[in-house]
Design a protein around this nucleic acid. Structure first.
Lengths: 201, 201
DNA sequence: GTCTATAGGCCGATAGAC
DNA sequence: GTCTATCGGCCTATAGAC
């Protein structure tokens, strides 16, 4: 059996990941350094390298942890009665700015780019699969609105809302939120009246 | 009269701005340093500070230059026969990734944030004013699709397309381009049949 | 306007003791 | 697993000569 020693490394790893996440959220990826992370965590900077290797490795480890949390929240949204609006709701939380920060990082770092690109595509594919069903129930032709387009639109609009809000630019944001909420509800209202009733098949 | 000496500074300033822009496009804002810029321009790094002051001042000067170019291109698009589709066309050019890079920079730099936020809002307001007319001509109720929402959607979708393309993630991009192109053309076809014909008023 | 020189600082990463 | 010590490097910015 594994006797949990007081410091077997997993606690330290968590401290380091938490510190990295906080700096990245507050000041952006460019402010992340082994020294700043260590200071934030109350550790020595060498421990960052001991536990994670290079800084890129640290970024990747943090991304994987965040992705896991996100996938669980997404799963709950997509398996709810209103997958479209529920995904929208969790997508416009300030938390999403964190995703954009990783994308900004990945665009210019070869070592993490591929993994984040694949993760992005995979998430979109999952959403599209669920949305395809919802759109079908709503009697919306996939020619008129492909499910993958709906997934893209939700990602693009929510990311831009959150990023611009962080920037302090919110021109038109209220109108956008109202517009999208209404449109997505129209889809799900239609899906409910047609699809959910087992008799209608 | 101002006798144009061989080096009155304006040529050097252009060299420095060009070098900064190239590094920012190729490697992102985090790769911009006075030394890297000077190396790219074939100059000494001290000249960067002599001509622009701090690095934030340099970023702002570059932003202002890019904004000016962008406003001219936008003006041409918005005064064309098809302002909506023309704006979409120039928005999805790879050049737009440059804008996203500035936004990513501004989110975490107080000194440049306000100016870029104001610029972002101002651009959107201009677009909305032109679109309001186009939507009116197309007999689209502003309750159904507010002009500012259309401007936001174009900005959000184009930025996300360009950023994800740079990331190497292009899941659903072709479908999105086809979908948006069609929708925007529907608006402008309707505007043409109703609005442009002077007899219809 | 451009040069040399330099102050003062943060960075990633490794070696070796415990 | 955590410590001390340290290498080599890049950074912003300024001072002062020309």
């Amino acid at each position: 059996m594994k006797t949990a020693h007081r410091s077997d490394g997993t606690a330290t790893r968590k401290l380091i990941l938490d510190a990295t996440e906080k700096i990245m959220r507050d000041e952006g990826y460019a402010a992340v350094s082994s020294r700043r992370v260590a200071e934030q965590a109350g550790l020595k900077s060498q421990l960052v390298h001991y536990h994670f290797g290079t800084m890129d490795d640290l970024f990747l480890a943090l991304y994987r942890r965040s992705e896991e949390e996100w996938l669980q929240r997404q799963m709950r949204a997509l398996t709810s009665a209103n997958p479209v609006t529920e995904l929208w709701k969790i997508s416009i939380e300030p938390n999403s700015e964190f995703v954009s920060e990783f994308i900004a990082l990945a665009v210019h770092r070869e070592t993490v780019r591929e993994e984040i690109a694949r993760s992005n595509d995979r998430t979109r594919t999952i959403q599209a699969a669920v949305f395809a069903r919802a759109l079908e129930d709503a009697r919306i032709d996939s020619e008129d609105l492909p499910a993958e387009v709906l997934a893209f639109i939700i990602a693009a609009l929510s990311r831009t809302l959150v990023t611009e809000a962080a920037l302090g630019a919110s021109s038109g944001h209220d109108a956008v939120r109202a517009f999208i909420t209404r449109r997505l509800q129209q889809i799900e209202d239609a899906a409910r009246t047609h699809g959910d009733a087992l008799s209608a098949t």
